[in-house]
Design a protein around this nucleic acid. Sequence first.
RNA 1: CGGGGCGUAGCGUAGUGGCUAGCGCGCCUGCUUUGGGAGCAGGAGACCGAGAGUUCGAAUCUCUCCGCCCCGACCA
Length: 574
Amino acid sequence: MLRMSTLFLRTLRDDPSDAEVASHRLLVRAGYIRRIAAGIYSWLPLGYITYRNIERVIREEMDAAGFQEVHFPSMLPREPYEKTNRWEEYGPDLFRLQDRKGGDYLLGPTHEEMFTLMVKGEYSSYKDLPLHIYQIQTKFRDEPRPRSGIIRGREFVMKDSYSFDLDDAGLDASYEKHRQAYIKTFDRLGLKYNIVAAMSGAMGGSRSEEFLAPCPTGEDTYVLCEKCGYAANVEAMITKVLSKEIATPPAVEVMDTPNTPTIDSLVEVMNKNYGGGFSAGDTLKNILLMADGVAISVLVPGNREVDVKRLQANLSGVKELRLFEEADFATRKELVKGYVGPQDAQKFGLKLYADPRIAVGTHWITGANQLNKHARYVTHGRDFQVDAFVEAVEIEAGDLCPKCESPVIIDRAIEIGHIFALGRKYAENLDLTVLDHEGKSRVVTMGSYGIGVSRAVAAIAEQTHDEIGLSWPIEIAPAQVHIVATGKDDQPFNVAEDLAKKIEASGRTVMLDDRRDASPGVKFKDAELIGNPIILIVGKALIDGKVELRIRKSGEKREVALESAVTEVLALLV
RNA sequence: CGGGGCGUAGCGUAGUGGCUAGCGCGCCUGCUUUGGGAGCAGGAGACCGAGAGUUCGAAUCUCUCCGCCCCGACCA
């Protein structure tokens, strides 16, 4: 039983000045967490109980799925990360340290290497597969910008699991098994979430989905089709191009378009000198970029922006991508800034990409590769050829769902889980092989699956709080029932104590506000701030043999007879 | 790393060159109070982020450093 009279807890009346988002503000005010350094937090008793409740649910679901728990150290040697090249790749995000002999160590940001090596050390036969193991571990990433309290810390707890299979079919099954386990887990945690197609990106691999908990303070942007349920990370959104009949356009016509280096200025001149009715969507933007030191050109409609991050995610293998700068134009005089067109890309030795919106057969107004000149009727397939299509534009609300063609919405969310079909990258680099039934050595294929455990505390707080405080789901709350005793006599305190014991005897958790010196107002405010789901008030109504029952979430209150109070409370907790 | 802001008691804050750094919450003592963050009286608690400088005099001005928050490029 948690007794407020002795609980290590001090609630704050004012919001802490360094907290912005609701979860951060309220978790600090309600005495769940305290900041130690940027992105590093301590868990106080209430916070730690809540955190452990979440951990428990996750662990139960992992175990129920038949996954086995292990525990690695946080501090790890350099060598394994050297072999997968991540000692370098992780860059400054990796916390590094040295021992007294100058040996390099790191604080684990994630543990693919260690799991792979562990399995390699024990297993060598296909008969041992499939295998699923997981851990719940503190992870360290020296984030460039820790943010939003516990949502994005430099130290955080993650549940990470890994699957090991002989072949692709096995990996698919393992992936699906994890997916189902995650659905159960997040449902139990009381989170609203969407499963969203994601890019596997830096982790490599073939298939990847994110579990995103929608909330306005989230850092991730995703698209959602409210009609058919299609959901995707903006990077992974697939463009739907409606095919339309296109008459064969006239031959290319070069036009004088003085002082039109921008789309807006071009449209204005076109409307003035070449008849009206032109809009930015009729023009073609030629975006020049440097991809790992090589100049490339990407075509997008003039009314759309390029999303460099999304573009990079879709240009497989490109490590560094940036827009052309003045210096790049200076070294490539043939590329006339503001007047570039795709017609001469081959001549210029430019690799040419197009957003899918630039379909074959469409024609555009675009640069003529001469200062102050543009060309029209420039037709894809006739006047230029692209090397490849690539998703490049910034997704906007109203873009069409690739499945059902209705307009999508754009929403924000917190990423609470991510599942990857990793494939063989790590197994190859670390030489994890098993013998198959023919006695031949085969590289194992892996999956990697994460849940942000500490982040889930914040995500749940974000989704469930209201103006006056936190409001936890039953299974997560520090206590399921919060009993407040008010008055100056002993009687309500004795009655409250008795109720607390009975409810606890029924297997429920109880917090008892047995403070003799606090006023009723203080106790009510604290109860609401702390956010336990059921609040039972023993006080004034006791004269009539009643106690007051409140539902934190709905605000509903009613008086119930003392004798039936326990039954009523238990009925609310099923 | 670029842009913006902030650092004064446990928390929230006032104080732009002048005397003993002020207020609210919280904390301690006493009395009163007990259904919506109680009242009165008394009290403790601050090397004003650190260092250097300017000045008769610095929380206040200058420089450097450190720390923190927010907005952008990365991720559970």
